[in-house]
Design a protein around this nucleic acid. Structure first.
Lengths: 192, 192, 192, 192
DNA sequence: TATGAATGAGTATTCATTCAT
DNA sequence: TATGAATGAATACTCATTCAT
C-alpha cells in the first residue's frame, strides 16, 4: 500500500505561495496549484477537502512558522536592545526569505477563504512580541506609551521596506538593515 | 466615449471598494458589484468594458485622489518639520477615511487585473514625497541617508497603524497621531 | 428587457422526464438536460438553483398534476361504482399518457435528491382517494376492511399493468382497461 | 477467473443493496460501496471489473434468487388454489424480507448500467409463473383471459402493498396477507 | 441607455478506475 | 490478494460578457 506522502503537502503549499505572489489570490485555480505542485487535481483533494481549507491551512501554517522564527537566538538575559535587535532582524530576514508568505497573508486577510477562527489565531501568536515591548518599557529603555502602537511602529518599517524593495526590485544590503534599525531605535528609545 | 453620468461611476467605484474590503478581490463578481451599485449587470458594461478595466480605472483613481490630498495645506515656505507634519497627517487622515481604498490597492498589487502600465503610474505619483524628503536632508534636519528608505520609514508606521487599528477595531485618537508622529520624527531627525 | 420565459421551465421539465425514462436518474447530467431543453447550462441555473432543486420541483409538479387529474368528471351524485370507474380510468389514462412521470417519481423515491418535506406532500395528495374508498365502504358496496390495503389493491393493478405493458412494448386496448377494472371490481365488491 | 472468497462478494452485494435503498442508484459511489463492505476500493475491482459489471451481476443474482424462491413448497399435485397461494405467499414474503432487492431492481430498470441482455433474462425467469396462470385457466378455475394481464393482476397487489407499507412504516400482519390474497382471488376466480 | 435573461467557457469538486506497495 | 493514494475525465455550478427588449 502506498502511504500518504506528507511531503506533498509542502509541495502544494509552496506552489500556492508562488502562484499567489505572481497572480494574487484572485487569480489562482485549483488545477493551476495542482499542476504547479506536479500532482493531479484529484490528488489535491486527498490532502485538502476544499480550496477554502487549503488556503486556511496554509495561512495558519505561515502564521505559525513565522512566529516560531522570531525568537530564535533571543534570551531574556541579553540586554534589552540586543534582544530586540535579534528579534527584529529575525523578522526582517524572515520577511525577505519568505516574501511570498507575507504577500499571501496580506491577500488572505480580506478574502472569503479565511474564517474568523483563523483570524483569531493571529492575535494569539503576537503575544510574545507584546511581552518583549513591555519588558523594554519596564526597563525604562523605551518611551512609556501604548504597547500596541509601539509594537506596530517597531515592525512596520521593516515590513514596508521589504515589500517596497521587492516591488522596486532593489537588493537589500546588510547595512541597510542596520540603518533601518537605528531609525526605529532612535524613535522608540526613552529620551535620557 | 464614456457616458456622462459620473454619479453612476462613483456608485460603482464605491460599491467595488466596499465589497473588496469585505470579501477581497478574489471574492467579488461583476453582478455583485452591479447589485451593490443598484444597477443591472448589463449597465456596468456601459461604463466599463470589462472587469479588468473597472479594476484598473478604480486603481488609478485611488492613486490620484490620494496623491492630490497629500499636499493640501503644505507650502514650501513653512518650516520643514511643520510641512512634513501636515503632509504626514494628511496621509494619516486619508488612510483612515479611505481605508477601503488602501485595502483595494493592496489587493490589486498582486492581482491579474492590474497592468504593468498602471503600476508604473504609481511610481510617478510618489515623486513629490521624494522631493519633500530630499528637502529635509538638504536642510540638514533629517539624517543623511538613502531617500527611499527614509521615505518608507516615515510613512510605514501610519500605514500599518491604521491597518491594524481597523482590524482590531480600535478607535484612533487625536493624541495617538501626535505620539506616532513623534516616534517617527525622533527616528529621522538629524542628531544635533 | 427580456422577461423571464416561464415556458422554459416546461421545456426543462419535459427534457428531464424524457432523459430519466431513457437513462434513469443515475444517468443524467445537468448539461444533458440543458441541451435536451435547447438552452445553455447556465440558463438552467437561472430557473433552478441546483440539480436537487430541479428534481424536487419536478417531483412536486408531477404529484400535483396527477392528483388534479384523478377526479376529472367525478361527482358525488354518481353511483359509487360509476364514480370509482371514472377515477380509476382517469388514473389509468394518466399513467399511459404520462408514463415518464411515473418512471421519474419511482426513481426519485430512493434518490438523494428528494427531501423529506417533498415526500410528505405525497401523503396529502392521496387523501381524496382515501375518501372515495371510505364512501364505498359506507355504502356497503365494498368489502369492509383496512382502507389502506383496499386503496392500494384498487390501483396497484393498473400501475403495474401500464408499467409492464410499456416494458414489453404492448399496446393497451380499450377493452383491456375494462377487463382489468372488472378483475379489480370483483375483488373489492362486497359479497352480496 | 473470479476469486474464491464468495463471502466478500456477498458483503459487497449486501452493502450495495442497503446503499441503494437509502440513497438510490444515483447516489452511490464505488468507494461508498467499498467502505460499507469494509474493504478498500481497490479490492472491489478484484471482484468486479467495473461498476457496471457489479450492478449487472447483482441484478442478475437478485432475479435468480427470487425466481428460485417462488416455487418452494409448490407441487403440481396440489389443488390449484392451494398451489397459487403458496407461490403468492412465497413472493409476498420474499418481497418483505428482500425489500432492498426490489428497490434495487426497480432502480436498475431505467439505469444506464443494465444491459439489454440482462433485461432479457428477466423475461425468461417469469415463464414458470405464466405456466401457473395457464394451468388455472385450463382447470377453469380462473377467468379466461389474457395471461399477461392476469399474471400482473395477481402479483401487483402484493408488490405495491409491500412497497407502500415500507414507505409508511406499517407492519404487515399475517392476516393482512390473507385478506389481500382473498381480494385478489375474488378478482380472478371464474364466476361459477 | 438600462435591464436582466441567456450564454458558454471556465472552475471547484467528484468519482470510476489504476497503480505502487 | 489487499490497500488506499493517485489519476484525470467528467460533472455541478459560476460568472464575465453579450444580447434581445
Amino acid at each position: 500500500m502506498k502511504p500518504r506522502d506528507e511531503h506533498k503537502i509542502e509541495q502544494i503549499f509552496q506552489a500556492t505561495l508562488v502562484l499567489v505572489k505572481e497572480k494574487g489570490l484572485a487569480g489562482i485555480t485549483m488545477s493551476e496549484i495542482a499542476s504547479a505542485a506536479k500532482i493531479a487535481t484529484g490528488t489535491l483533494y486527498i490532502y485538502f477537502e476544499s480550496k477554502e481549507k487549503l488556503i486556511n491551512d496554509l495561512f495558519t501554517r505561515c502564521r505559525k512558522t513565522s512566529a516560531e522564527t522570531y525568537f530564535k537566538g533571543y534570551h531574556t538575559e541579553q540586554p534589552f536592545k540586543d534582544g530586540l535587535k535579534i528579534v527584529w532582524l529575525n523578522l526582517f530576514d524572515f520577511r525577505i526569505e519568505h516574501f511570498e508568505e507575507a504577500v499571501f497573508m496580506d491577500q488572505c486577510y480580506h478574502s472569503p477563504y479565511i474564517t474568523e477562527s483563523t483570524k483569531e489565531l493571529t492575535k494569539k501568536l503576537i503575544q510574545p512580541l507584546y511581552k518583549l515591548v513591555e519588558r523594554g518599557m519596564e526597563e525604562k529603555l523605551l518611551k512609556k506609551m501604548d504597547a500596541f502602537m509601539l509594537l506596530i511602529f517597531i515592525f512596520s518599517g521593516l515590513n514596508e521596506f521589504v515589500k517596497h524593495s521587492f516591488y522596486s526590485e532593489r537588493k537589500i544590503s546588510k547595512s541597510s538593515k542596520e540603518e533601518l534599525f537605528n531609525l526605529m531605535w532612535d524613535g522608540i528609545k526613552a529620551s535620557s
